[in-house]
Nucleic acid binder design. Structure first.
Length: 479
RNA sequence: GGUCCCAUCGUCUAGUGGUUAGGACGCGGCCCUCUCAAGGCUGCAACACGAGUUCAAAUCUCGUUGGGAUCACCA
């Protein structure tokens, strides 16, 4: 049987890093086995639906090169691939499941939201027995026919322990009486995730289901549905979450960086993808830099990790630097250009870009220290002035002249606290190490300066002296 | 609270009974260099705890502690 995996996001906002990683693993499981990767949109919760979110999903996947073989936009043999368009299908199967004894109709009002209930008390977690379960089927049907609102709830009739196998976690045992008889078909006629994912995964012939490990405890419920229909469950691959710190998941809700945020900051999609691939997976050897194609070759779900991984922006930054340094001068400049225009308050980046263009061409390489694309302007100016000044005085001069007005505007000359602190730090460092902080030293030389250096110089010398020295440098270069 | 899951340097991890517990990021030092960065070399740094099994345990078992998940007409 051909391997088929699916990425099934809800269009509720930006693409989270954890989501993207799940998609990656789905993609890799399929592609490392010559299988198909399917995109399915799970939009059964109309309350959480966010306009444009689907587009973000498309763009993100395309941006990192994870192309899907079937999906809402390109179709396929198992469509439609948007759950809201499959509404009738779910209803049909839900009624069928009732006939098969796997579910029942329920007419209870929606449970009120608990307010002042202490989450930790046992009482807060007592599962309600559903009185509707005992309504005779004929009576229930009559009430539905009469127009009474209803939901379809799952029947958990089994006793004892359920055992299922997970690729990552191994065999897992859960008692049936831990399971609640959850809603499968909501009163608005749309299915819940618990039902839709089973129906769709079966109908779309999905072989491997990859999802967050928060679904582990409800997996037996899904197996019960498969069983009631006489279907074979897929292979389960539950993955641990990506964490922000030891206690908290990475989540957009808390303002954690999304894929798009990272890209905007100058992280290359390839680097982000490479980094998150290694967050919970490793190839078994010591390689760390992988293109998507290379990952396809060596990926194995057996090497997925069981414990959560903390997202470390520092290491991503390092990896991003690796990717940026590998760019050709042309590629680099093309990618960096938007950032020149993006920071109008600090420098005239258009002019600066024109100044820097020949430098990249001359050097034929990217400044080694360039880590973030978004930092390109600052780094470039600094490096340029420092390194090329002597041989390329003319261009350096132009860069300096661009920097000067910025200094006057951006440095808070009145912030005495800042200046005092930095001055003190510089002096302490001088006493301790016998040398002045590098940027200050450069600045003091009066010949070379940089935005950063000038700031520190200003801390030590004050505004007038700083500007005087920079002007001297410009004059000297003009000759 | 019930149930399920997890536990190696600060972080990502290798490790499936015998290793000086390896690598990467970060951090410190040295080299290179007109500075920084990059590169090279090097240093600091971990098996949560306690029993047990065994000649031998990071690895197997049990317990403890700590953390996470779940108990929605959200996914």
């Amino acid at each position: 049987m051909k391997t088929r995996t699916r990425f099934a996001p809800s269009p509720t906002g930006y693409m989270h890093i954890g989501n993207l990683r799940t998609a990656l693993y789905e993609y890799l499981i399929a592609k490392s086995d010559g299988g198909d990767f399917i995109l399915r949109i799970e939009d059964t919760d109309q309350k959480r639906y966010v306009e444009g979110a689907t587009d973000i999903i498309y763009k993100t996947l395309k941006r990192v090169g994870m192309n899907w073989d079937e999906g809402p936009d390109i179709g396929g043999n198992y469509g439609p691939y948007v759950q809201s368009e499959r509404k009738l299908l779910y209803a049909e199967y839900a009624h069928k499941l009732v006939e098969l004894g796997g579910a029942h109709y329920c007419f209870c009002a929606q449970k009120e939201e608990d307010k002042d209930v202490d989450e930790d008390t046992p009482e807060a977690h007592i599962k309600l027995k559903d009185p509707c379960k005992h309504i005779p089927l004929e009576e229930a049907k009559a009430r539905i026919a009469a127009g009474e609102p209803f939901v379809v709830r799952q029947n958990i009739n089994k006793k004892g322990t359920s055992v299922f196998h997970d690729v990552v976690y191994g065999d897992i045992e859960i008692d049936y009486d831990e399971l609640d008889e959850g809603v499968l078909l909501k009163s608005d006629g749309l299915p819940t995730y618990n039902f839709a994912n089973v129906i769709d995964d079966h109908l779309m012939q999905i072989t491997h289901v990859v999802r967050g490990n928060e679904y582990i405890s409800s997996t037996p419920k899904y197996n019960l549905i498969y069983e009631a229909f006489g279907w074979t469950p897929p292979i389960y691959v539950h993955v641990p979450p990506v964490m922000k710190d030891a206690q908290h998941k990475l989540s957009k809700r808390n303002g954690d960086a999304s894929f798009q945020d990272l890209v905007t900051k100058g992280y290359l999609p390839e680097a982000i993808l490479n980094y998150i691939a290694l967050l919970g997976w490793n190839p078994g050897d010591e390689r760390e830099i992988f293109s998507l194609q290379e990952l396809e070759k060596c990926f194995s779900s057996e090497r997925l990790n069981r414990s959560p991984a903390i997202f470390d922006i520092t290491k991503l930054t390092w990896m991003n630097g690796c990717y940026i340094r590998n760019l050709s001068a042309e590629e680099f400049h093309k990618l960096a250009l938007p950032y020149y225009n993006d920071l109008p308050q600090t420098l005239d980046f258009k002019a600066l870009s024109a100044v820097l263009q020949p430098r990249v061409e001359t050097l034929g390489q990217i400044p080694a220290e360039t880590v973030f694309l978004a930092q390109v302007p600052e780094y470039s100016v600094e490096l340029y002035i420092n390194k090329k000044m002597k041989t390329d005085a003319d261009i350096a001069l132009k860069a300096l002249q661009l920097v000067l007005p910025v200094l006057e505007k951006t440095i808070d000359w009145t912030n005495e606290n800042l200046f005092e602190t930095m001055k003190k730090a510089a002096q302490e460092n001088e006493m301790k190490n016998g040398q002045i902080l590098y940027p200050v030293r450069i600045a003091l030389s009066g010949l070379e300066t940089t935005p950063g250096g000038a700031t520190e110089l200003a801390c030590v010398l004050g505004k007038d002296e700083t500007l005087k020295r920079i002007n001297n440098a410009i004059n000297k270069l003009s000759k």
